[in-house]
Design a protein around this nucleic acid. Sequence first.
RNA 1: GGCGCCGUCGCCAAGUGGCUAAGGCCGAGGUCUGCAAAACCUCUAUCGGCGGUUCGAAUCCGCCCGGCGCCUCCA
Length: 483
Amino acid sequence: MSLRLYNTLTGQKEEFTPLEAGKVGMYVCGVTVYDYCHVGHARATIVFDTVYRYLQHLGYQVNYVRNFTDIDDKIINRANEEKIGWQDVTKKYIEAFYEDMGQLNIAIPNVEPKATDHIDGMLKMVSALIEHGKAYEAEGDVYFSIKNFPEYGKLSGRNIEDMMAGARVEPGEHKRDPMDFALWKKSKPGEPSWDSPWGPGRPGWHIECSAMGRHFLGERFDIHGGGKDLVFPHHENEIAQSQGCSGTPPVKYWLHNGFVNINEEKMSKSLDNFFTIRDILKRYHPEVLRLFLLSHHYRGPIDFADQYLNDAEKTLDRFYEFFAAAQEKRGELKVESVTDANEGIRSQPFIQKIEEAMNDDFNTAVALAHMNEELRHLNKAMTHLQRKNGDWAGFDTAAATLKYACQLLGFLYHEPKDYKARVLASKKETLGLDVAQIETLIAQRQAARETKDWAKADECRDALTALGVVLEDNAEGTVWKVK
RNA sequence: GGCGCCGUCGCCAAGUGGCUAAGGCCGAGGUCUGCAAAACCUCUAUCGGCGGUUCGAAUCCGCCCGGCGCCUCCA
């Protein structure tokens, strides 16, 4: 079975056939760097990171481009508010982006262009659009002329007449039609500006992505991704601009991820109901956030709440506990032992089930269901083999294969002990745990157990339970964790 | 107002015409254990409502109820 994906352009799932066999060109709209990223940004980034990883797993040579919008009204406003240069704003938040996304184990795209490095390409496109009669200059601004692009609206399923009726021209604009949008904006005094045939100014937002996509991936490429909120007008405008220049639709498959909601409302700055990635990572391991987001289909909405993260954390704990136990018994599980050749891992029946799920429009939720089942089977097998002292060969391969699948979805990248340590550290922080007190109680309990004073031992454990600490007695001694 | 999406077990969430409606969390019982924990086993839904199409629908159509998104910057 081959990869099928939902194309916003056609409104249905389609078989994926790249323009050039074996290769995929993919452009994903990145962030505007004027503030810290929130969980909504994390979702979009993780979703397309997963798409990227999966396409590579399938053997495609992927050219993945994800941009930074580093010139924009919001950036200028932020710079004015903080009384610093706009480049200081973008530098700061690009660094923050890398810190946050690094924590989330986002693979680095092949190219991460900044809009301001591609002004020339934008100017060329704008000039070409004017030459083709698709755009016009008006007092230093340049606008795209909607009525000269009859296909406008095909991505978002709108028609021009309906939109015209509800559209308004803002004061100070010089549009011929209300729906026309800016390709180039005349700059106000003191604002960042670049020279152009129409005087000093800066690019409109939409032309940035068109120019960067075209520069790195050509006039036509395979996949363009972004959040659902970009369908209109951003991506609609990209099509108009790019096709207006080249005469050909720029993108074969348009993919859009759903929102992150808080109490079923879209997370956004204006509603002031957002959590930044760094806020969340103070309390939860990055892989918890990733697992939570991938336990839902990427196109649907996700409601965000601590309770759901707690559920995801329990699931992730199970995986790490299994691999901790498996490594203790079997040594390091080398994924390489079954992945010397990509064909090797892909021939595994379990991976074929994962592929079947992922091939259906990246159904990570179903893939995770298979992984949970496999985890259960392997836990059972591990117990059984240990008791019977059986042949572990099949187990080793299966465990390494499961690990490969986990990593395909971007988690299980840490040593189990490091994972546990980090989770514990953040819990200690948030719950204000006194480790010395806990260890004293454990020692007292251990002493009581050695004299078989079970009442005293249980008393110690009850005290720990009250602190939120759970004990686990095993062959090596007693380990504790936070409930 | 225009366009579109969603409503599946206590909670989260797959499934969109036909095997017993995945999986996770929580809960109950059990195996193991000094007792626990972990792990494993077993159990827990007929799919918002009504009507229709069909041999057959959670899945298609219609109406209704409830929730949300885009239409302005937004992942």
